[in-house]
């Protein structure tokens, strides 16, 4: 199959001017860089002042999430009490380098694809009321106004339901049956909120007291999508860990100090999957130094060392 497609693709003839066109693209940038330098000489003082202001502010131009997908590009704010405000997703001014993630607008909130999954069979049992049907109206070129429309989405047209046992302000579900196949996916509202501690996120996942089993895998298996999971046997340690998640401290994912960027290796990185009684699977990323990531958020969490290290020792 693969070879067939390759053979066919390779039949597309390469024009002689191909390399020249690549060079032209690069030259355009070089020319712009030269022009920028000239402008800088004239307006140097003004630009320097602007840079200082930018560096001085608490800003985050969002970065890579646990699985490498770029999240939103909003400015997050750290309050004096240590809580973090995550504003509603806004479109960046320059959308040419922006990334699309699966999202649905419902009740004025933006729900994004998430790190909790469920098999369609299990989803059937906890499907709640039908809330509406999405419209596939948002794409990379949409203006901000498109985000204001109820049930606008980036995922095409699909029915949306509430999920029994979960707050619909936090989680909704898409569900569809076609030709005896079912598709179900959770979407979660993890923006436009203030996070003071892990409780503001993790308690919504209803994990405490509802765990059926858990397993973990190392970075390379996760990265290559190899389902080489190892079971987690000590439920006492896991339950203590889940309780402690309520107390974890939110930290901003800043471009140059996000620990995950230096932890993409088997020593420092674990994916922990927690299976709940209702069939949902919550996937957390744990880093050796006590950090925890969930979903497509501009924050990560830091856990008390004692509890975390007991958990980490189970993941070896």
């Amino acid at each position: 199959m693969s070879n067939r497609i390759k053979q066919e693709m390779n039949k597309i003839e390469i024009p002689k001017e191909l390399s020249e066109r690549s060079e032209m693209g690069v030259s355009q940038v070089k020319q712009e860089m030269k022009n920028d330098r000239k402008r800088f000489n004239v307006k140097g003082i003004g630009i320097a002042a602007t840079l200082l202001v930018s560096v001085g502010a608490f800003t985050l131009f969002n970065n890579v999430t646990p699985d490498g997908i770029t999240g939103n590009q909003d400015v997050l704010v750290v309050n004096k009490d240590g809580s973090v405000e995550i504003p509603a997703i806004q479109l960046p001014e320059d959308t040419s380098s922006a990334d699309m993630i699966g999202l649905i607008i419902y009740n004025g909130k933006i729900y994004t694809q998430t790190r909790t999954e469920i098999d369609a069979e299990d989803a059937k049992a906890i499907i709640g009321d039908k809330l509406g049907t999405t419209k596939g109206t948002i794409d990379e070129w949409s203006k901000q106004e498109a985000y204001d429309e109820e049930f606008a989405s980036t995922i095409g047209k699909i029915d949306v339901y509430s999920v029994k046992g979960y707050d619909k302000d936090f989680r909704i579900m898409t569900y569809e049956e076609q030709d005896s196949k079912q598709y179900a996916e959770f979407y979660e509202n993890l923006n436009g909120l203030t996070i003071s501690s892990g409780e503001d996120v993790f308690s919504k996942l209803n994990m405490v007291g509802n765990v059926s089993s858990a397993q973990w895998r190392i970075f390379s298996d996760w990265d290559n999508e190899i389902e080489n999971y190892k079971p987690l046997s000590d439920m006492v340690v896991l339950n203590t860990f889940l309780e402690e998640l309520k107390k974890v401290k939110p930290l901003l994912r800043e471009q140059n100090s996000d620990p995950i960027s230096n932890s993409r290796n088997n020593e420092d990185f674990r994916e922990l999957t927690i299976n709940l009684n209702d069939g949902s699977r919550v996937r957390l990323t744990l880093l050796k130094d006590g950090y925890i990531y969930y979903g497509f958020m501009g924050v990560y969490f830091e856990m008390n060392e004692g509890v975390f290290s007991k958990m980490w020792s189970q993941l070896k």
Binding site: L18, R21, S22, E23, M24, G25, V26, Q28, V29, S96
Partner: peptide, 20 residues
């Protein structure tokens, strides 16, 4: 060919943002 040129332009312009 236009796509190739535009890809070269956008990628060289933004490569400084590539973290990995």
């Amino acid at each position: 060919l236009d796509v190739v040129q535009e890809t070269a332009y956008r990628s060289f312009k933004t490569i400084k943002n590539l973290k990995e």
